[in-house]
Nucleic acid binder design. Sequence first.
DNA 1: CACAGGATCGTT
DNA 2: ACGATCCTGTGT
Length: 212
Amino acid sequence: MTTPLPLSFYDRDVVDVARALLGQVLRRGSIALRITEVEAYAWPGDTACHARAGRTPRTEALFGPPGRAYVYLCYGLHHMLNVVTGGEHEAAAVLIRACEPIAGLSLVRRRRGGQQGPGLLAGPGKVGEALALDISWTHHPLHEPGGLTLEPGTPPSRVLAGTRIGIEFAAPRDRARRWRFAAADSRAVTHRAHLRPSVRPGARASGRDELC
DNA sequence: CACAGGATCGTT
DNA sequence: ACGATCCTGTGT
């Protein structure tokens, strides 16, 4: 039995949490998935974020508390899993875009229509389908045992970074943000050609200001 | 109450 | 390049 990641893991800058989520493990029942690709979203300051219109019934979960799930229905078909971060002053979350199966492969394959290979869970809608998520999972705590949890895994030795996918509606400034991150050691990554080695947030205050 | 618009996916 | 499909935010 593994202990979930502590609440403190989520209570920091959303871009830092996004990077740190690579390699960590999503668990639901017999299924365990290693996270291989993520994207950060944050309001205020990011017109790609769902909370861009402010606080509404739907975006309530984005305004904290951290460590909870935010699941929404995309295009009326796909359920997308986000991990809420930060405090109540901002609406921030990390979209889980891709994973690779660690356990429960047969059930994952069945839910994914028998598909296999690196593309099995490469895409946010695929992750939601494999975990059988729906919007009722919104607000679910990922740091407490039971249901859906996030557990410590093996972080990648190298991280790739690039711009976020599917946000053409957003302001050019926000489209240019390199807030998509992927594990360099994994083949379960979407749009790999648009990623390149990530610059570490090193001396700078935060990776937040990193542009194209 | 009506309407337009998606943080996608799989097929053509 | 396109259609599926439905929740959400906005306007009347």
